[in-house]
Design a protein around this nucleic acid. Structure first.
Lengths: 104, 104
DNA sequence: TGGCCAATTGGCATAATAGCCAAGGATGGA
DNA sequence: TCCATCCTTGGCTATTATGCCAATTGGCCA
């Protein structure tokens, strides 16, 4: 694996890692329905606001979401709805895994 | 976030996490071209065989790949090619991120 | 049986993540 | 100006992930 390939894969990995957490998946699904502010998401996720803020910051730096300040609130929105396409595939893999386990 | 939702998201997370590593991405792309044995992949990735074996074991338990013993070798193959669809989306997110950075 | 090769597993050290509390910065209203 | 609210950041600990070496398993062949 040469340096160029590795660098390309690391860039992809940053985005995939950003999605690889239950709370972040939850927020992405929620943001697919519309903009939400941090305190709303924190309430829904059921974690400390600082934790949720860090999750959002991570999603933002990965390019998955975008933020917008309004007064003293910060609203987040999905930047790329194609991310939702991930989930269909993930479901397919899960079905495939279930099938595999039945085989054994 | 209720218990049922969390459990569903954790299941999805397992699969996404399995893809969230440069070497594993590399192997998935390589397996998209056809079956490969562990030593071939280890050679290509440029890591210790034991490391590659653990990566493959992780991908397998996530349901992304399947293995098949032939003599004293083990061949791996993609179980669900839809995983490749991830990458198109990832590219889109990366483009979107580049755009975001130009804006700022 | 003994030796070799492929692969997995155990063990360990290091690095990266996650989550909370506390502190700080910004905004809006009284 | 003072205070409350919203959010982010720093700091810390606990957990998890990574990658190597060493040891082990399993198959093949002489």
């Amino acid at each position: 694996m040469d340096r160029k390939t590795r660098s390309r894969l690391e860039a992809r990995t940053r985005i995939i890692k950003a999605l690889a957490h239950p709370s972040r998946l939850f927020m992405v699904e929620e943001l697919a329905r519309g903009k939400r502010c941090v305190c709303e998401l924190a309430e829904m996720v059921g974690a400390d606001i600082s934790t949720v803020s860090k999750h959002l910051s991570l999603l933002k730096s990965a390019g998955v979401v975008r933020d917008e300040k309004r007064g003293n609130q910060v609203w987040y929105e999905l930047r790329c709805t194609c991310v939702l396409g991930f989930f269909d595939c993930v479901e397919a893999v899960m079905d495939s895994l279930a099938e595999q386990e039945r085989e054994e």
